[in-house]
Computed example of a mutant assay.
Amino acid sequence: MEKVRVPVTVDPVKSSGKQLSYDGVVPAGSLVRLQELLLEPCADVDVQLQFDVDEQNIKYIEGKAEVATVVACERCNEAMSIVLQTEFKYAPITKRQKADELPSDYEAVELDELGEVNLHRMVEDELILAMPVVVKHDDKDCSIDSNAMSWGKIDDSPEPSENPFAVLQKLKRK
Results as ranks from 00 to 15, higher is better:
D156R: 12
T94H: 08
K14T: 13
A130W: 08
G29C: 07
D11M: 02
A43M: 11
G17T: 06
D112G: 04
Y106C: 06
Q50R: 14
I93R: 10
E87A: 15
E116W: 01
R5S: 09
S143Y: 02
E124H: 00
E107C: 03
K18D: 14
R33Y: 02
S16K: 00
P92L: 02
D141A: 13
V8S: 11
H137A: 06
V26G: 02
I93C: 08
E107F: 04
E55Y: 08
A72S: 15
S104Y: 09
D100G: 08
V117W: 01
T86P: 02
E124F: 01
R96G: 13
P12D: 06
Q169E: 14
D139Q: 13
I61W: 05
Q48W: 10
F165L: 14
E113I: 09
Q48A: 12
D138E: 15
L111F: 03
L84R: 03
I61Y: 03
H120Q: 08
P132M: 09
V47P: 02
K89V: 12
E162N: 13
E87S: 15
P7R: 00
Q35F: 00
S30F: 02
P164Y: 00
V123L: 04
V135T: 14
Y60S: 04
Y60A: 02
V13C: 03
P103Y: 01
D125P: 06
L129D: 07
M1E: 09
V67T: 06
S30Q: 10
E74V: 09
P132D: 11
W151M: 12
